[in-house]
Amino acid sequence: MINQIIDWLTDPAHWSGTEGIVHRLVQHLEYSAISLVIAALIALPLGMYIGHTGKGTFLIAGIANSFRALPSLGLLTLIVLVMSGSLPFSIAYLLPTVIVLVLLAIPPILTNTYAGIQNVDAEARDAAYGMGMTGGQVLTQVETPCALPLIISGIRSAALQIIATATVAAYVSLGGLGRFVIDGLAQQDFPQMAAGAVLVAVLALLVDLVLIAVQRFVVSRGLTGRYARTTASSDVIEAESVNTLSTAR
């Protein structure tokens, strides 16, 4: 069986053309990137605003809990069904899917951004204001850089969520790597199905690795604990565990 999967993956015919791996991979990345960017554009400023001002914290608890309970497949089928009839064919499946992906990616980014900003050392924040920083300067020069580890792990969760759900979206006729799984299933072609699963897993892993590299690059060494590390309080651990490892796939 393993050999059949390797055979399927190494067959050049499976790599080219509009049904080929390269094209599917590009599609998958396209949907994912668009959705992640839109979700970040919404969730980052909102999370920063709520964390900085302390206004609207009810949104955080509400969104974090209720969105996690929403089944992604249910949301996908419902929104595609509702919207596809009234949309031109070219985006009939893409737009509803992107909406669902964005909806599912917002909570991890939002809650982690909020938690990151909120968990910034109260003394550092106090000192920042005391030295004459304006609210905006405190947010951009102190709170956000200090919150980056949590913010980026939120983005990582969101990216994994998006890639996983984009795979499922092949069920509602979207392109991308999920097609191999869905088509393989429909055609009783198990090697194709398993190869699709392998490709999706590898993609998810690579994207996560890239984001880890980004995290290494943008987060200050003063925060990463590669030097002296202060022990985190249980509250922070609680928030971290919940927020970074959250979300269904």
């Binding site: 000192a127 004459g132 200050s220």
Partner: peptide, 20 residues
């Protein structure tokens, strides 16, 4: 903010910025 920039401010746990 301008007032504070002209006044030195030292607090209990120093409140240094951990990322700088």
């Amino acid at each position: 903010a301008e007032l504070r920039r002209g006044i030195g401010y030292v607090i209990q746990h120093a409140g240094l910025f951990p990322h700088r």
